[in-house]
């Protein structure tokens, strides 16, 4: 589903990603862990198409197409979704409007009819219940005045509505209490299917208690230093990252 080869990216002349290789197959959940400043968020942002990153080398092939040549909206239409580490507040833009516009744009791209208002609202309400998001949030401005946990839940809610094929969760677990974490994880697990893939970018192991990954990667200093099964996450939790760094330089 997603194949990243030898990806180099820099921000304002500073190299952040230094040759990333990653192969994510449909049906898999990958966790990317690593210390702060290792390039985890840069990787998510590059995949989602955010401005401000210069790709100096490499390729990101998604469903057989070069993702780096697509605009952010084309990536969304093709089924890529990024749950933001810091969801943006957009005063004056209604949450439901955003989802309706996004979903219908995607459907149009796929050659499907736009959903009518009633069908759409049914979907939206069902998905809101899934992440235990009060329906009053639907008519509020996007993320405006939401608490940290509400913002993260709103991301998962959007993901549930847009039903992406590739979901990238950028530190969605950070700052969540245990109840919110369970809700977020529930949303991700519901999305899980043989046709979809999930990439979890996280700093902590505890999210992986609720979402079982197929592969765990350690990203440090712009490179994937080690990959393994879910037991790698537990080891990282116990021993920290230093041993991986030492192992890599040894």
């Amino acid at each position: 589903m997603l194949k990243i080869e030898n990806l180099y990216a820099s921000v304002a002349g500073k190299e952040i990603l230094k040759g990333i290789d990653l192969d994510v197959k449909a049906g898999e959940i990958h966790a990317i862990m690593g210390p702060n400043g290792s390039g985890k968020s840069t990787l998510s942002n590059v995949i989602a198409g955010r401005d401000g990153y210069e790709i100096t080398q490499g390729s990101v092939i998604y469903k057989g197409k070069e993702l780096l040549e697509m605009s952010p909206e084309e990536r969304a239409w093709e089924g890529v979704f990024l749950a933001f580490q810091y969801p943006v507040e957009i005063p004056g833009v209604n949450n439901t409007y955003l989802l309706k516009a996004g979903l219908n744009a995607k459907r149009k791209h796929m050659g499907l009819d736009e959903l009518d208002a009633i069908d759409f609202m049914q979907i939206v309400k069902k998905k809101a219940d899934l992440v235990e998001l009060d329906h009053s949030f639907l008519s509020r401005s996007v993320n405006e005045g939401f608490s940290g946990g509400e913002k993260k839940r709103n991301e998962i809610f959007q993901m549930a509505v847009l039903e992406p094929d590739l979901a990238l969760l950028d530190e969605t677990d950070s700052g969540l209490d245990i109840d919110a974490l369970r809700i977020v994880a529930g949303g991700v697990n519901k999305l899980r299917s043989p046709d979809r893939a999930v990439v979890l970018v996280t700093h902590y192991q505890r999210l992986l208690d609720y979402i079982e990954p197929d592969v765990v990667h350690v990203l440090a200093d712009g490179q994937i230093l080690k990959s393994g099964g879910k037991e790698l996450a537990l080891e990282l939790e116990k021993r920290g990252y230093d041993w991986v760094l030492q192992e890599a330089t040894a």
Binding site: A48, G49, R50, D51, S71, P72, E73, R75, A76, W77, F81, L82, F84, P87, V88, I90, P91, G92, V93, Y97, L98, L99, A101, G102, L103, A105, K106, S141, V142, Q158, L162
Partner: peptide, 20 residues
């Protein structure tokens, strides 16, 4: 970027933000 990442075209996203 947030709006575009949810599937709004650039023009639409601009319009939405200006309108808001």
């Amino acid at each position: 970027f947030y709006l575009r990442s949810r599937g709004l075209s650039e023009d639409e996203a601009r319009n939405v933000l200006m309108f808001a």
